[in-house]
Structure formats: structure tokens, C-alpha cells
Design a protein around this nucleic acid. Structure first.
Ligand code: MN
Ligand code: MN
Ligand code: ZN
Ligand code: ZN
Lengths: 137, 137
DNA sequence: TATCTAATCGTAACCATTACAATTACATCT
DNA sequence: AGATGTAATTGTAATGGTTACGATTAGATA
């Protein structure tokens, strides 16, 4: 997902282009391919906008996730975000606990178990693999 | 897992039998088959021990998880616990977001993807399915 | 019963997240 | 360009789950 494309997607919904929002997107495009904790986004953005508030960070992260520009997960009780993967279909991730980088896992276990949940309403699922990537080993 | 068996397991490691610890185990054996948030354990135990402290709850829950008497997961930013499943091998769970009850899913996706993670060190994985159980529908 | 140590209590700190009133910035229209 | 309407940000505080710790109590053992 490209920054301009993301900004336009928001514009169509009536959301405005702001320097802070743009900077958040920049941060994600610099550190691609990995989950970043909200805290890190805040610290990074403070370099350019010293007085930035928590509200701004979280409002934007949640909005961007809502609009599928970002995707999120929770690791060690902290929310993490990354650019949404739109290059291929539904898939899952290996997540490096060292650097946050991810590797796509092109397999969804839901197909294999659908019939075993007859009578249950499935709303969501989570499949994540944790460990160290080659770079961190 | 039976309460006496759990207490004995702890005794062998030098941990003492206390009323509070026993009560925690009782709570889990009453509400079997489902995840319970730490908060609920606290509220429940306060009926018998009004002055019980957070320290006691968390120390015991973490100890019991460490000793494999309980297993834990994080849902909506809150830690949840349940009796450890020791009746069968490694498996995963459907978790009802209404009542916390779980249903075993006898399929682990790790077998299918092991070879796709060559060069990566896998430490852990999480596969959970969320939705409503028949009772909550 | 004396002693040793685990366990608990009471309380506060911690930390990520959420909330909100006041102010400012962005986009649009005339 | 200037006025207007609304989204967005700021500054700050509250919330809520979790963690920490010194002082005290209770369980186990001899
Ligand atoms: Mn991906
Ligand atoms: Mn089970
Ligand atoms: Zn899937
Ligand atoms: Zn598994």
C-alpha cells in the first residue's frame, strides 16, 4: 500500500490529509514488512511533532486499521500495526519476536476444520507463529 | 485435572497448600471447559476472602500456569485462564466470546507449514477460533 | 513448640490505552 | 482571498489491568 493511495482512500470517505497522518504512513512505509508497536510510532513521530498527543496516534492507527490500510495484532499486551498485505489473498504470518518482521504463511487452517464446528458461529480466527527470523538468529 | 492432584503437584515442588490457592482451583473446577478472566477469579474469591490482594491472585494464576495446572491466553487485553487440557495431545480451541467456553479442535496447522519456515527458529504458535457456541446463539 | 520459609495483605506504582474540552488546521464555497 | 463548517489535534487527565514490595501471617517440618 502506497502513501498517496492510502491518503486518497481516506479522502474519499471525507477524512482530511494532515501532516501527522502522513507522517504515520511514512513510518510504516519506511519499516515495511513488520509489526510496529504503537509506542514506537509515537516516539518516532515526536521527532517531527514534539507535542503530538496519544489521541492522535491511536485515533489514526485505529482509523487506518478500520480502513484496511493497516492491520493489527496484540503482542505482549501491546497493540502492533503493519501495512495491510494486499498483494495476495487471505494468509497468516510468522512474526519475529526480535525485530517484528513477518513472513507470509500461505496456509489457513480454517478450511481443514470448518466441518468440525457445526452448530458454532465462527466470527474470527487467529493463527500466528512466533520465533526468530534468519536476520535475528 | 483434579484439585488434589494439582495441590500435590505443587507440594512436590515445595509450594504450600493454602486456602486461597485451594479456592482458586475450586473455581476452575466448578466452571470447567472455559476461559475465565483474572478479574472474575478475583471477584469470586473475594466472596470467601474479602481482603484478598491482587498479588495473591496473579501470583497463583501464574504459578499454576507455570506448573501446567492451568493454561492461559489473552482476550481483549485481559489474561484468561482455564484448566490445562491433559486428556489428549496438543490441540487448539474454539473460544466462545459469549461465555468463554471452549471446544477442542484436533488439528494443528504447524505440521502443514513446517517446511515453509526453513531458516526460521519457531518458538511458539497460536491458533484460536472465536465465535458463539450453540448455547450462546 | 520453635523455626524456617512460602504466602498473603495492603497499598501504591506502572503502563498502555482511552477520554474529552478547547483549540487549530484542512477543504470547500462564494 | 476570505468566510464557513467540520475533521483533527493538543494538553491533560482518567481508566483499567497488571506488577511491585515491605510488613505480616500462616503452613510445614522437626
Ligand atoms: Mn502478509
Ligand atoms: Mn482442550
Ligand atoms: Zn485464516
Ligand atoms: Zn498447534
Amino acid at each position: 500500500m502506497n502513501i498517496e493511495k492510502a491518503i486518497n482512500k481516506l479522502k474519499e470517505k471525507g477524512y482530511k490529509r494532515t501532516k501527522q497522518r502522513e507522517r504515520i504512513l511514512e513510518i510504516f512505509s519506511e519499516q515495511d514488512q513488520g509489526y510496529i508497536p504503537a509506542k514506537t510510532i509515537l516516539k518516532e513521530i515526536q521527532k517531527d511533532f514534539p507535542g503530538v498527543s496519544y489521541d492522535t496516534i491511536y485515533r489514526n492507527l485505529y482509523l487506518l486499521a478500520e480502513e484496511q490500510v493497516l492491520e493489527s495484532t496484540e503482542l505482549d499486551g501491546e497493540k502492533h500495526f503493519r501495512f495491510h498485505c494486499d498483494t495476495h489473498g487471505h494468509h497468516h504470518h510468522f512474526i519475529c519476536t526480535g525485530c517484528g518482521k513477518t513472513k507470509a504463511v500461505e496456509f489457513c487452517p480454517m478450511d481443514k476444520i470448518a466441518q468440525s464446528l457445526d452448530g458454532y458461529a465462527v466470527d474470527d480466527h487467529k493463527f500466528e507463529i512466533y520465533g526468530k527470523c534468519p536476520g535475528c538468529l
